[in-house]
Nucleic acid binder design. Structure first.
Lengths: 358, 358
DNA sequence: CTGAAAGCGCTTACAG
DNA sequence: CTGAAAGCGCTTACAG
């Protein structure tokens, strides 16, 4: 029974406990699972044996026999970005509250095979389900990856899959911030886009839509990398063009890089050009000037995605405090399957009215 | 064999494959594990069965029987801070390269019981080992938590445990940056400290040491929260004191908050007061003024901690490219058990000589 | 090359 | 209340 581990340490099993306590393995198991049908005497002996052996049941064996592993697998690309980081925090916290552990895997690259591989590795653990962050950043069609067996939820920039999805409403946000900039009096708004496949770049789409709807001139979007340094370069170039009076950057980091570039060339923000970001990075309010941006509730998105996932699992249905299932145990509202998390416009000082003509 | 999962989906097992392929379970297993001793004919049939059933071996069952779960458990507090975030990225990437998955658990609070709980939950998965980030931020003595069974590595601000530890050399960094500030001509340097238990606040200790060694006046350190807003408050207060010409903040976010507070009160940085941070946050170079700071190699720290952990596990010993074990398979160098990762002074524009007296 | 058997550490009916 | 047995999905000697 006392076997060696990979580490060379010996690990104690339920058999050891049973032997030391002088009872059967079944009894120990019963004790472990609530103690019903175990005499006080046995309980005492077992408790003692566990104590002296420093026994802990193997989560692995349990998961195997119970056919349910209380773990949530999260797969994410761009794990170092603000959104994924904050969402992971939310997922982690909510998972803990609900008694689930979390496993994370990030694909080596954006390519189909790597993503599939990550998704499969995640599924192999027989987790409660998979939370897939930003599938729409992948340069492939999502439907190619799913259905994987088992529950899942996607966190996306925009509702598209139809089910089990929490959406950050990026398009709406892009539209709102662009409109705001236009409302300030700018003729048009330039866009420095985050490096996401165009069809799935919702922020960009919102920007375009706002421009279209107001009949404004639509400049080509400028595709940027994730590095603020790239945005700085772009800022320097943009500074050369006096038609540029307002720029919406795909996220706050890029907005910050952009402002640096603009300043490198002597432009003032917002006097010469207004710059808005997206996300409401924790430091955005401290910037000088404070960044006008769209606040995203990433942490909440993470938490909600856990609930959305667990809602698909019978054992985790939480009728008591929510009325999530009806009398038949069926899902009551379609809306419970997906969720929109709306961004909020935060107006600070990096944006303002354009300078008077000439 | 085809059982239901928690999700209600059926899952296919090795038995199903064996049956469909018309061979024994053993043969399928052999096929799965390299295919030696399986006739080409069988291989074909098995491959086909796997394909049509869409079979994937259960990682759980494998881990159980092999008595080794190729997963690294990382437990961390303050998971949303820059350091942990970046380290997690490094851990994740390196773990992937070395064929391990990763599991993360963050204690609910800093209290002993919660930490122990996280540590135990991690250990219950029978992982390859545990990477414990910033144990020294915990308000308890580390030795209380270990030895837990199995391999582990700590990532700390300063080498203290003696073994299996990667240290970020915070004290050295604090000393270096304080000395730099002094070298600029400042009479002394104030410190806005990160909310870490004093005995383990290495950055603070380095600062104090530099002051002591140069015989400078040692002001009381100002304890701050993690929120830059707290630092802003402190900045406003500090602005009232004309003796304050140089401040070293416990990290870049706080430095940024501090600068905001100083400016709120009309102080200029660095003209009126120099401010230095710590970590070299990705945005620090874009700040205006650029932040003088200590660059920390968090990602590398994460990667190294994985290697340090795996080095404790026979199956992962990598003789080929490193000579990590000697002829007897013993560890050759003590130094391989722990690692110092030195920070690097980055001089930017938030610091300068003090203004001429009056 | 191949299959039957035993075993990993647990849990869950099933008879007492 | 209690123990023996079967089983979770795999792997690993062991005999052919």
């Amino acid at each position: 029974m006392t076997k060696m581990r990979a580490s060379g340490k010996k690990s104690v099993s339920i058999k050891d406990v049973a032997k030391l306590a002088g009872v059967s393995v079944s009894s120990v198991s019963r004790y472990l699972n609530g103690g019903s049908n175990v005499s006080p005497a046995s309980q005492k002996k077992i408790a003692q044996a566990i104590e002296t052996l420093n026994y802990r049941p193997s989560a692995l064996a349990r998961a195997l026999v119970r056919e349910i592993n209380p773990a949530i697998a999260v797969v994410t690309i761009n794990s170092s970005q603000l959104g994924p980081t904050q969402m992971l925090g939310g997922i982690e916290a909510r998972a803990r509250e609900r008694g689930a552990s979390i496993t994370i895997s990030v694909p080596e690259t954006d390519r189909r095979e790597d993503i599939l591989n990550s998704l499969h590795m995640a599924a192999d653990q027989n987790p409660l389900g998979i939370i897939f962050m930003y599938p729409d950043m992948v340069d492939e069609n999502i439907s190619d990856f799913f259905p994987l067996e088992g529950p899942y939820v996607m966190v996306t920039g925009q509702q598209t899959m139809g089910a089990h999805e929490v959406s950050l409403c990026d398009q709406e946000g892009g539209e709102i911030i662009t409109r705001y900039l236009l409302s300030l009096g700018h003729k048009t708004v330039y866009h420095v886009a985050v490096p996401v496949r165009l069809e799935y770049n919702r922020r960009l789409q919102g920007w375009r839509k706002a421009l279209e709807n107001t009949g404004s001139y639509i400049p080509d979007p400028i595709i940027c990398g994730w590095d603020p340094e790239d945005a700085r370069e772009i800022g320097r170039r943009l500074a050369l063009n006096d038609d540029v009076t307002a720029v919406f950057a795909g996220n706050d980091e890029l907005a910050i890089g952009l402002i640096s570039g603009l300043r490198d060339m002597g432009k003032r923000v917002p006097d010469d050009v207004s710059v808005a970001g997206f996300d409401d990075h924790p430091l955005s309010g401290f910037w000088d000037p404070g960044l006008t941006t769209i606040h995203q509730e990433f942490i909440r998105a993470g938490r909600e995605s856990v609930d959305l996932l667990l809602r698909q699992i019978p054992q985790y249905q939480e009728n008591p405090d929510g009325g999530i299932t009806d009398a038949n145990g069926d899902e009551t509202e379609i809306s419970k399957k997906s969720l929109d998390i709306h961004g909020k416009l935060i107006i600070r000082n990096s944006t303002g009215a354009p300078r008077q003509e000439k």
